[in-house]
Design a protein around this nucleic acid. Structure first.
Length: 292
DNA sequence: CACCACCCCTGGACGC
DNA sequence: TGCGTCCAGGGGTGGT
């Protein structure tokens, strides 16, 4: 569920809280979520956080001494900051999430990693479904070489030419191509469906047959969609919240995603939104506005 | 190369 | 009420 806008909202909220702060300790409740060295040093203990970066749906917390913790939220991952454990904010978070171990130092269920900062801030990585995880690297160069180089250009920055090159090089349909993170990084099921609706493109239309003169407007639309979603704090369908525990509002703007069988929202269009499995994902589109 | 099934995993919705 | 079943989807893998 976290796609580019949600991950960017987490990045911004987290960066505000941790940049320039020193990590005093880390507690790992479930070592399996960490790939690479799970040592204290690799998890930035003793280090000062210099920046929080994002590429596509992935985050990276960079320490001043060079170490990097890359965070992927997967489907259900969260990075949430609170004051010290047990304070009012933590209690609110716990009751929001629902379950809390009956211990004095209690965290919501599925809290896999907990960082404490010298400022007193506590940052928790929680991920019930464990599709996400942490990857540690010795340097930003290693992060890029080993992980981020496999991703295409970020969806917020890719230009028409690069997107055109990616799309023209595959015989897959647009839906499958836009979901492919090697081609463009950051789009997921929700925003691909919304983008294709906005652009009037059928999800099954061939990626390599998209006329080149439609690329600039497709890129503009993609940026507008993603930036608008970021401004509204992202889409909160189940339990997505940013590092400040704030939910987003973009879900109220979805025009096709999750609306199968309902009327198309475009003025004057009476068609009902269709849905089917495309590229292994439930895909929603308007059969009238998006023709093959 | 492209597509498929299957896997990771839990929680929520729904039917009986 | 409680249990079984299905679904959600980011990403990886291995087979056709």
């Amino acid at each position: 569920m976290p796609e580019l806008p949600e991950v960017e909202c987490v990045r911004r909220s987290l960066a505000r809280l941790v940049e320039g702060r020193r990590v005093s300790s880390v507690r790992v409740n479930r070592a399996g979520v960490i790939r690479g060295s799970g040592s204290d040093a690799a998890l930035l203990v003793g280090d000062v956080v210099s920046r929080v970066l994002r590429h596509g749906k992935q985050l990276a917390i960079v320490g001043e001494s060079g170490g990097v913790v890359s965070v992927h939220l997967g489907m259900s991952g969260q990075l949430c900051a609170t004051g010290n454990a047990g304070d009012a904010l933590t209690q609110r978070t716990a009751s929001r999430i629902g379950s809390m171990k009956a211990k004095p130092e209690a965290f919501p269920a599925h809290t896999h990693v907990v960082w404490r900062l010298e400022s007193g801030l506590v940052v928790r990585f929680t991920d019930p479904r464990r599709f996400g995880g942490l990857w540690t690297f010795a340097s930003e160069a290693a992060l890029v070489a080993e992980r981020w180089s496999r991703l295409g250009p970020d969806a917020l920055w890719i230009g028409p030419a690069a997107l055109g090159r990616g799309l023209s090089g595959t015989r897959r349909c647009l839906k499958a191509a836009l979901l492919d993170q090697r081609l463009v990084a950051g789009l997921g099921n929700i925003y691909v469906d919304e983008l294709l609706f906005g652009a009037g493109l059928h999800p099954l239309s061939r990626a390599d047959r998209l006329p080149g003169d439609r690329l600039p407007s497709l890129v503009r639309r993609m940026r507008t969609l993603l930036r608008g979603a970021i401004e509204r704090g992202g889409s909160s369908l189940r339990d997505y919240v940013d590092a400040d525990n704030r939910a987003g509002q973009q879900q109220t703007r979805h025009r096709v995603y999750g609306r199968a069988g309902e009327r198309c929202k475009r003025r004057g269009c009476r068609a009902r939104i269709e849905s089917d499995q495309i590229a292994g994902r439930t895909t929603c589109w308007c059969p009238s506005c998006q023709r093959l």
